[in-house]
């Protein structure tokens, strides 16, 4: 299931949500993946706070974010994994507004691609704007679809 979904996503298509085989396990796997996303975002945060971060570290982070963003449709958010399952913080609106959720996922993926491209140039001074774009892409989706905090 995951491969055709990822292929569709790669072509710019946004497939429908897949059903969860084991919802509790799916929530745990999603959160583990989101923890890996947070690891990458922490590098971006250190950069934004003016700490010493190399363009190579940012490029690695952008790669991780891109990989995880591409997986958002491919099983990370199967149906039946909203708030109430495990310690899910995913609002049910994700599946009610699936196309909008897909738009946010596409935006994040595009922002990560751009960040990786700028990071590959090694020009740290040019990184702030694409880093901020990635952070804002996360925040836009979390505002609507993730329960605080």
């Amino acid at each position: 299931m995951a491969l055709p979904v990822m292929l569709a996503f790669g072509l710019g298509l946004w497939p429908g949500p897949v059903p969860a085989g084991d919802p509790t396990r799916a929530v745990a796997e999603r959160q583990a993946e989101m923890d890996r996303m947070a690891e990458a975002m922490r590098v971006l945060g250190r950069f934004l706070k003016g700490e010493a971060v190399t363009a190579a570290e940012i490029a690695a982070g952008a790669g991780a974010i891109h990989r995880i963003a591409a997986g958002l449709a491919a099983g990370l958010f199967p149906e039946g994994t909203a708030i109430g399952v495990g310690n899910s913080a995913a609002r049910p609106e994700i599946w009610q507004e699936w196309d909008l959720f897909g738009q946010y996922a596409t935006d994040l993926r595009a922002a990560a691609v751009r960040l990786a491209a700028v990071a590959a140039t090694g020009d740290v001074r040019a990184l702030r704007e694409p880093v901020v774009a990635v952070v804002r892409a996360c925040g836009a989706c979390h505002e609507l679809f993730r329960k605080k905090p």
């Binding site: 996303m37 947070a38 690891e39 990458a40 975002m41 922490r42 590098v43 971006l44 945060g45 913080a89 952070v135 996360c138 925040g139 836009a140 979390h142 505002e143 679809f145 993730r146 329960k147 605080k148 905090p149």
Partner: peptide
Amino acid sequence: GDVVGGSMA
């Protein structure tokens, strides 16, 4: 590395 969600966002 987390990003705030919900009403704080």
